[in-house]
Structure formats: C-alpha cells, structure tokens
C-alpha cells in the first residue's frame, strides 16, 4: 500500500516536473485533468440530487405525519368547516377560505400598485434614480415578516379600526363585505400587510418583463403619434400581459405561504364570514399558532394535513406561474 502510494507520488512528481518544473506544492493532488472534471461532475451532481431528495423527503415526511388525519377524515377534510380541537373534530375549509381570501385581496391591492411602480421606474426615472428607487422597493422584501407583523399590530390594526373602517362603512357599507364590527385585526388588515409584502415581488418581475420589450416597439408606437400613455398601453402592457400574469401568480405564491405577519394580525378564528372586518385564520397561521399547543395526536396530524394542503396549493400555483412565464418567453424568443 505504502509502496504503491510512493510510486504514485513519484510518478506524479515526474509528470509535474514535465508540466511545470517550479511546481512543488501539488505533489499528492495531482490527478489528470479528466479525472478532475469527473470528480467535479459527480460532486455537483450529488448536490443537485440532494436538493431533489430533500424535497421528496420533506413531502414524504409531511404525508407520513398527516396519515392519521388522512385516514380519519379523508378528502372531506378540505371541505369540513368545523375545527374543534377539544372534540377532535377537524376540517380545513375555514383555513383554505382564509388563505385564499387574504391572498386574493392582497393581489387586488398590490397588482395595480406594482405595475404602476414598475412602469414609473422603467419609463420615467433616469437610470441612476431608477436604480435607487428599485433598491428601496426591493428592500421591502428584505424586511423580516415578524417586523411587518409588529407594525401591523401596533400601527395598521388601530388605523384600520379607527380610520379605514368608518370610511368603508359609510361609503360601501351596503355591501356584505363591509358590515359588522371591526376590532382592527381581521381579514382586511392581513390583506393589507400581505399586499405590502408582495409588492416588491410583483414589481421586480414586472420590470424584467417590461425590459424585454424592445425599444423599437416603443418607438414604433410613438412614431405613429401616440402619447406616452398610449405608447405604454400599446407597446408595453399589451405584449406583456402574460408576463404580468406570471408576476401576479408568483406574488400569489408568496402571499399564500406567508405566516408570521398574517398570524399576528388576522385574529386566528376558524370561521368563515363575508365581512372583511371579521377575524379569520389561514392555513399557515393556524399551524404556527396551534402547533405548540396540540395535545392530541390527531390534532397534530390534522395540522400536518393542513400543511400538506398548503403545499399542494402553493406548488400548483408556482407551477402555473412558471408555465405562464415560460410561455411568454417562448413567444418573445420566437
């Protein structure tokens, strides 16, 4: 063994001297270049496989922990509206409702703002200012969600209760969405926070989409005597439609999974109500809130089942977004 090693070193030293007579350091690690490439290849490949295995393992683990609840409630779990840990009765519909309604509202609020901000940064600001402003917008994404939650509890919730609710009630109070008492925390506040959190996501993707529109298209619109606004409509927004849709769906993916900030301001009540002032709970927030207190095994398992449902919803939506963006880039490329 030792002999073999020595002879290997000797051989490689000879080779080394041939290649570079000054090289003294790498006597032992003197593989042929082909071997180096091969090792690197397998190293990188194993990392890549590891990531995929992790994902599979994670889902398998989730399903395994959710099995008792799956056996007990079956697919009806997703449509049951009764969540009562004391009686060991579990149905995830209130959380599905909470997640979807807050995310949907957040999108309604965030999309116009984000598209506007993206257009403003790309089309109005000079390059230097654009870099600064977009940095600020993207910084919003870097704020930890717990900080958003604190801000929501101490500032936004009182604002919603004392200022926004009276205004909405007096102007749109005839709609069922704006009836009932507001305690500050509830669907509306959670949606506002979510909107704020997904604006940077949608904005930066919209900016990328708008950047793919060639200057030539914009000039073509202007040369036909369009105003700047008409140019944006014709040459930017129209061809970017599916790209903007992709941005929205990615924002939606983020909103669906957001936990901490929402858990702090949504009120955590497993109920379904038409009023946006009423408290609710999302799939993510119920897991965060009840995980530590779950004393029965079925309760814990039901929470895992909720987690699995959440995974399915976000996975589907992300897949959809990728498909839309891919479709768009195919169109631009062709």
């Amino acid at each position: 063994m030792i002999n073999e090693n020595e002879s290997f070193i000797e051989e490689s030293t000879k080779f080394n001297n041939l290649v570079d007579s000054n090289c003294t350091k790498s006597k032992v690690f003197n593989f042929s270049y082909q071997l180096q490439d091969k090792i690197n290849y397998y190293l990188i490949k194993s990392f890549a496989c590891l990531v995929i295995l992790l994902l599979i393992g994670l889902v398998a683990m989730l399903i395994y922990s959710a099995l008792p609840a799956m056996e007990e409630f079956g697919l009806g779990f997703a449509f049951g509206d009764d969540w009562n840990p004391v009686e060991d009765e579990f149905g995830a519909l209130p959380f599905l409702f909470g997640t979807l309604i807050t995310s949907f509202l957040a999108l309604m609020l965030a999309t116009p703002v984000s598209v506007g901000v993206a257009l403003f940064i790309n089309e109005v600001l000079s390059k230097k200012l654009a870099a600064v402003v977009s940095l600020f917008v993207e910084m919003i994404a870097a704020i930890p969600s717990i900080v958003f939650g604190l801000w929501g509890v101490f500032y936004l919730a009182p604002f919603v209760k004392e200022t926004l609710t009276p205004v909405l009630k007096s102007s749109l109070g005839f709609l069922p969405f704006f009836q009932g008492a507001s305690f500050g925390i509830g669907i509306l506040t959670a949606s506002l926070i979510l909107a704020l959190m997904i604006i940077p996501t949608i904005t930066s993707i919209c900016r990328i989409v708008f950047k793919t529109v060639p200057t030539l298209q914009k000039e073509a619109a202007l040369a036909l005597g369009s105003t700047r606004f008409e140019m944006i409509k014709i040459a930017l927004l129209r061809p970017s439609f599916s790209g903007i849709m992709g941005a929205i769906v990615l924002g939606l993916g983020r909103a669906l999974g957001e936990t901490m900030a929402v858990a702090m301001v949504i009120g955590n009540s497993p109920s379904i109500s038409a009023s946006l002032f009423s408290p609710a709970a999302t799939m993510a927030s119920v897991i965060a809130n009840e995980y530590t207190e779950a004393d029965s095994d079925l309760h814990l398992s039901a929470l895992c089942y909720v987690g699995f449902l959440l995974f399915i919803v976000t996975f589907t939506i992300n897949g959809l977004a990728r498909f839309i963006v891919w479709n768009q880039s195919k169109k631009v490329g062709g």
Binding site: P214, A220, A221, K331, V332
Partner: peptide, 21 residues
C-alpha cells in the same frame, strides 16, 4: 411632439409590427 409625429411618419431599420396585434 405627438402632433409632429402625426404629420411626419417613420419606418424603422428593422421591421417592427406590434407582436400582439
């Protein structure tokens, strides 16, 4: 300039019909 461009048309180097129209 919008008025100007309505009196003076332009054709560009590369054909640039609007791809979504």
């Amino acid at each position: 300039p919008v008025q100007v461009r309505r009196s003076i048309g332009m054709v560009f180097q590369k054909p640039n019909p609007f791809p979504s129209m």
